[in-house]
Nucleic acid binder design. Sequence first.
DNA 1: GAATTTTACTGGAACGTTCCAGGTATCTTT
DNA 2: AAAGATACCTGGAACGTTCCAGTAAAATTC
Lengths: 353, 353
Amino acid sequence: MNPNNWNVPDKSLRKQATLHDVAQDAGVSKSTVSLVLQDNPQVKDQTREKVLRSIEATGYVYNRKAAALRQAQSSDLIGILVNSFVTPYSAEILNCFEQVALSKGLVPMMASNGEQLDQQERFIKSYMEHKVSGFIICPAPNTSVSWLDKIWRSGFPLVQIMREVPFSQFPAVIADNRNGVREATRHLISLGHQKIAFVGGDEAISDYHERLGGYMDAMSEAGLSVPEAYVLPISQGRAAGRQVLQTLLSYKTRVTAIVCFSDLMAYGILSMSRELGIEVGKDLAVIGFDDLADSSLTHPALTTVRVQPEDFAISAMEMLQNHIQNSQVPAERRVIPAKLIVRESCGAPQNIN
Amino acid sequence: MNPNNWNVPDKSLRKQATLHDVAQDAGVSKSTVSLVLQDNPQVKDQTREKVLRSIEATGYVYNRKAAALRQAQSSDLIGILVNSFVTPYSAEILNCFEQVALSKGLVPMMASNGEQLDQQERFIKSYMEHKVSGFIICPAPNTSVSWLDKIWRSGFPLVQIMREVPFSQFPAVIADNRNGVREATRHLISLGHQKIAFVGGDEAISDYHERLGGYMDAMSEAGLSVPEAYVLPISQGRAAGRQVLQTLLSYKTRVTAIVCFSDLMAYGILSMSRELGIEVGKDLAVIGFDDLADSSLTHPALTTVRVQPEDFAISAMEMLQNHIQNSQVPAERRVIPAKLIVRESCGAPQNIN
DNA sequence: GAATTTTACTGGAACGTTCCAGGTATCTTT
DNA sequence: AAAGATACCTGGAACGTTCCAGTAAAATTC
């Protein structure tokens, strides 16, 4: 092994080592080196070790691009697009996907769409060019079926998560939004609440309508009226929660309970309540959705609806892999169960779970 | 939309279209198609349009792998490794990097190391195989210089962010931790506090020592003693903040102010204080670090130290690009300014800023 | 010890691009 | 009308792998 070849500091002059270089160094053919890299048992141990030493010596780094080029379409890359990095629930989801990918030997390429179509399209286009083998995607509002269709027809299977594009027939993994919020609302009703608001969410996104539906179900089955003013869609977030509480308090007949689209919005309501001297859990019942890590640490601890982020990752990844290896499998729509987690913010006796 | 169509077209039988297919469809050579893709003005408009139509018709997707293989080392991929997706400040950083990459036409490959060496090594190895053109990395605790050195010598420039491996001479973009915490501590001292604790942080990470140093600076310049029990390193996070407050309250002489390693820890202290009936901003002063989006919404609003996450992204990306295009540029260590943001949690009159 | 099988390795085509060195028309110039 | 210039297009080598078909040597069989 030539000592001055690989360690010269000047990167610009020094090409990265290739199979060929390793082969030369080890005095074998590049085919043999390739076999070693693939752990092929055909290679004599003595040769294998010689090659491994040369790999080390040359600082060789496997070139997956070249390999993938040869091996037709295969690629260990999975494109994962969520709505945002800074939304805690999305961050949890990403984290789960990373772990699942790691355990399957896949490499996730993750990006956010920032809820914007153009950003979403730029990333998807770019990932297609990098030949990911499929997509996991939380579609931005107003994503069109025809666009998804184009992706699919270009040879990239995809699985929608968390939301789905209306009338799309593509595989999807969706939370049981309707049941979750129905249970939550029933819980409030069982505690005697009648004037219950549903706040937060984006009307352009499917999950909003499902959660709203669950709320409506529970209200109507209890024979409770839902004045228009009780439903306040507003983009989720803490600041919105603060604002929404003030709106609700301005009503002549005061609401006694609030079902929130998300935990984040519930946090905002909690924070504003404290400032206004309203005691949540006594004067006002608040219920969230997501069960973020922080929700057991708020004061009062937040009653909320939990949908395991791991389940999204495991199901979506599994479904995508099925579509990658066999284009004939039918599109499935999987629903992740939602579970009511009773804590203190509704004033109910706390369950042990 | 054909209801059974998107299920049927057998991807396994249908190869993705290549330059060659497009060329055939358009009745030109693949070289011409390549020229069109590169917007080369040599091509007659008529031909260009014919080719573009064929691209559309065949559903052709550019293959960046093949292109990069030909064009030697170049690649539009940047590997970005942070410590965690679920830490809010890291999420903000990732978001900024994504925006910067987008604006430069680069494609970020992002992953987290989960503060673990093995996960970090797996991702870096994988990204090297995918021939990213460089790395932005927030090194996990106990990352070794020799490992970084190996990456660098394999031809991948890297820039450390937020933390740096001790004695490493690689480029780095670091917050002005020492000054930030020094200012914060001085602020508390100027308000009359003397018994001030410094809590949180991981002793295995460089930023801890810098922030601790800032605290020590301020204490000693004011002639204040720092009993050992006033410094409580503990892995950051809300739960830790709750716990740490109880420890501090157990001391015979009570601490009147707490400098926290992070906002997250401060949130824990805020939440536990509320439960214990301690009024932060009056009975106890608390100061954070990070200025998360939520920190202006807590009650009381958190006094903290802000380090613009955008600045990390902009500086690190710029430095990395310099190293990518010219291996001779010297390693620079850039410091991002830290700014004290005075809000309510220390009981100080609130500045307007 | 000749024929056969097994073991361990190798040469080279192929993957889908880029880009250079040409190659034809067509257009100018004289 | 010949020569040169220009505009537009093309063939083919190269990038770093994989993998098939093949080869040479060693081991086994008869």
